[in-house]
Simulated assay, not measured.
Amino acid sequence: MLLRKIAAAVFAVLALGGVQVVTATPATAAPRVLYYDASQAQEFKAVVDQGAQIWNNSVTNVRLLPVTAGRTPNIRIYADNGWPRTYSSSLGNGYWYMGRQAVNQGYHPPRISAHEFGHILGLPDRRTGLCADLMSGSSAPVSCTNANPNATEARTVNSNFASAVAVPPQVFAWR
């Protein structure tokens, strides 16, 4: 008890003298939260949620959450019979389609979902043909079930949301 009082007195004297004794660790910015609306994703709602969770487990500077009542979503997801495709209006904003054509051809639905979210998060198609590259899209074999971004893709998304990077509106098609 006496030591605490002495330490407090020493710190008070030093502080009055303008000496900084303890420095706080720098505050880290909270991740940017993007809200998505999967109400029109029909039978793919659970897959959309899975794609969002994959990104939430892979990056720290952005979070994808289902839209709550009274909020306007940043991202809307629809289902249709075409190919999956994304229309981004700016970084973190836009809409995408979970196209049944790719699912019917055997492409892994969680991979499609994570891939399309990747576009909203600022990643382009890479068409490397590698299953390890989430953004290789349909250039990877139909048998590819990897739905996780690789380290470079995750690092790029973290970088995109670490600052105010401007990403112009774009259209991405799954083919």
Rank of each mutant, 00 (worst) to 15 (best):
A79N: 10
G18Q: 11
A52E: 00
M98R: 00
A154T: 03
R85Q: 10
Y36H: 05
E43G: 12
H119P: 03
V171H: 12
G92L: 10
G94L: 07
M98G: 01
N74I: 05
I112A: 05
Q20Y: 05
H119D: 01
A79W: 03
A166K: 14
A52W: 00
D49G: 04
L14W: 07
G129W: 06
S139M: 08
A69M: 09
S113Y: 02
R85W: 04
N146K: 03
D133M: 06
L130H: 07
G82W: 02
V48H: 00
V167Y: 11
L34V: 05
F117H: 03
A102N: 14
M1H: 08
I77P: 02
R127G: 07
P84D: 10
A27D: 15
C131Y: 04
P110S: 11
E116T: 00
A147Y: 00
V165N: 15
V157G: 06
G129Y: 05
T68V: 14
T60F: 09
T23M: 13
R175S: 13
A151W: 04
T60N: 14
D49C: 06
V22C: 13
V59T: 04
P169Y: 12
R100V: 00
D49N: 08
G106R: 01
A79H: 07
A12L: 15
M1A: 15
I120V: 13
E153I: 02
P26W: 02
C144A: 10
Q170F: 11
P110Q: 09
G82R: 05
A132Q: 08
W96I: 03
S89E: 10
